[in-house]
Amino acid sequence: MVLMEEKYNKNYYDRIFMEEFLPHADALNTFAYHLTYNETTAADLVQETYLKAYRFIAQYHIGTNSKAWLFKIMKNGFINDYRKKSKSPKQVDYEDFVNYQDGDDTSHLQGYMDLREEMFQNMIGDEVTIAINSLPFDFRTVILLCDIEGFKYDEIAKIIGIPIGTVRSRLHRARQLLKEKLIVYAKQHGYNID
């Protein structure tokens, strides 16, 4: 009876939230970043995941796998909300592009070259991130959950909602694709991923 009363006490849920949920914020943010490709959008996704987790906290069983539970909420939230939005036409500033192409003034060309150089410099060291982010969503997700976050096959199966055999085959294919993308870069750093 005491346990029941405690279970429905707000402080009880707040304690679960603070002690079991919040420590996974960085891991959730890494996952969100690789889903959305954008730090601001990732932060929004993290916040929405935590708000949903608190709203449904009564469904969480204390001491079970809170990290997997949160990742499942995030994955579902991403598919239901963010992915739909991302399928809308991209906000490319077409006017700027046309003005650049048609313009006679070339003074801005140096700025463009500087920007391109800066982009290139920023890419160095980010090859792994770029390679992972270029994978199709289903492959990217299993790589992130297994190789980056260390979830086991059965946990990944529950998070994504697919059979364990599919996790295994999807991981195999995802690693093959990642290897193809990183083979040269890895060799430059002394790793053989053949």
């Binding site: 990732a42 916040q47 060291g125 792994v128 053989n192």
Partner: peptide, 22 residues
């Protein structure tokens, strides 16, 4: 190879202020 990939992947940090806002 696994530690190489884990060490190279980008992991944007969350600030304490952001957690507090949540």
């Amino acid at each position: 190879v696994r530690s190489f990939i884990k060490s190279q992947v980008k992991r944007p940090k969350i600030s304490p202020a952001f957690l507090k806002s949540i």
